[in-house]
Computed example of a mutant assay.
Amino acid sequence: MNYRTLGKTGFKVSEISLGTWQVGGRWGEPFKEENAETIINAAIDAGVNFIDTADVYSDGLSEAAVAKVVKKRSEEVFIATKCGRQIQPHTPEGYTPEKLVGYVEQSLRNMKLDTIDLIQLHCPPTEVYTRPEIFEAFDRLKEQGKIRNLGVSVELVEEALMAMKYPNVATVQVIFNMFRLKPSEQLFPVAKENNVGLIVRVPLASGLLTGKMSHQTTFNSEDHRAFNRNGEAFDKGETFSGVDFDLGLEAVEELKRLFPGQEPLAAWALRWVLMFPEVSTVIPGASRPDQVASNLQAAALPALTSEQMEGVRAVYDRYLKPAVHQQW
């Protein structure tokens, strides 16, 4: 495993880490604590030292499982969680310093911790980024020793650029993959200039970039890939990166031709993300331990050739750019 610096935090984190949206069970299925602990332990065994969770993942059960495992390990493992998505309706007016402080304190209770390594605003509405009092609240939490660092998880590149104007923002979490190239053009240079760590989520476009899906693939009715394709529940960019499913399948077939051989497309898709030195870590999820091992294969792959990098760009430009580039 290779390690990279996570911006202003100074943390040296595994370049492939673990996201826990679906840990312990597939999307739409009940949370299974034993399965979650097995997955988290497998990741740490393989050198992962950064785990991303959120208070809304399985109503705090994901946070609790992460912390339970980490506290039993001798390795230093950094825990990142998120707050704000509990606000319903999810509007700017619902965001107040008092509510956010309360959510942070609840996360500390969920995890039975005194301090959170990284707390992130969880994709708040754009207007929230114009309110200094929201960001100042986290300075007080840091002074009290309840958090070590503040980050933001964003939907839009514009939101990331707004957030980085606050000096206490140490990290930005953003969707970036072969289907979503805009961040590398507009966000990455500014993050580098401001020493802001970049955490890449949804690197496999909700499974599309595994190369294992087809027109016959079906999803559980409680799976966001079934009910959120048009943004019915939250930003549609979180589901297949906002790409039309059938169009995405066409693009995947083109990508497969760029990477013939034994390794699955998923590993190459993760390796592609790591070709960008501004990226601190990528956080693919897993619902089974073998998926952790599969994700980590990417770290051992050789660098992509210039022809492969150009090929990915060409597929994006041909199939996806007109539909997604300006949306996020």
Rank of each mutant, 00 (worst) to 15 (best):
L249P: 04
G7P: 12
S287M: 05
L18D: 04
T126V: 13
P264Q: 06
Q216S: 14
M178G: 08
P277Q: 08
E105H: 12
M111G: 05
R73N: 12
Q173W: 00
E93D: 15
G231L: 11
V56L: 05
D235A: 13
L118A: 02
N194R: 15
S74Q: 13
L296N: 05
G231D: 05
E232Y: 12
S287D: 11
L255Y: 09
C123M: 12
E127P: 05
D246I: 10
D59V: 08
S306Q: 15
L304Q: 10
V48C: 08
G197Y: 08
T91A: 09
M111C: 14
D223R: 04
Q262N: 13
W21I: 09
P125F: 12
A251N: 10
G25D: 05
P30D: 09
N230F: 13
F188A: 07
L265V: 04
I87N: 00
T305W: 04
S294M: 13
Q326N: 14
N41D: 14
P89D: 06
P124F: 13
T38S: 13
V48M: 03
N230C: 13
I16W: 01
N149H: 15
K82T: 08
L118E: 03
V69N: 04
S214N: 07
Y319M: 09
R85M: 13
R148K: 15
I199M: 15
T218M: 11
V196P: 07
R288A: 14
M162I: 02
A300H: 14
E34V: 08
N195F: 07
V190R: 13
G7Y: 11
N230G: 14
S107L: 11
T96I: 07
R26G: 14
R271T: 06
A286M: 01
I175S: 11
T130N: 14
R180W: 06
G94K: 04
T91E: 13
Q186A: 15
G10C: 12
H325W: 15
I134Y: 09
N194C: 08
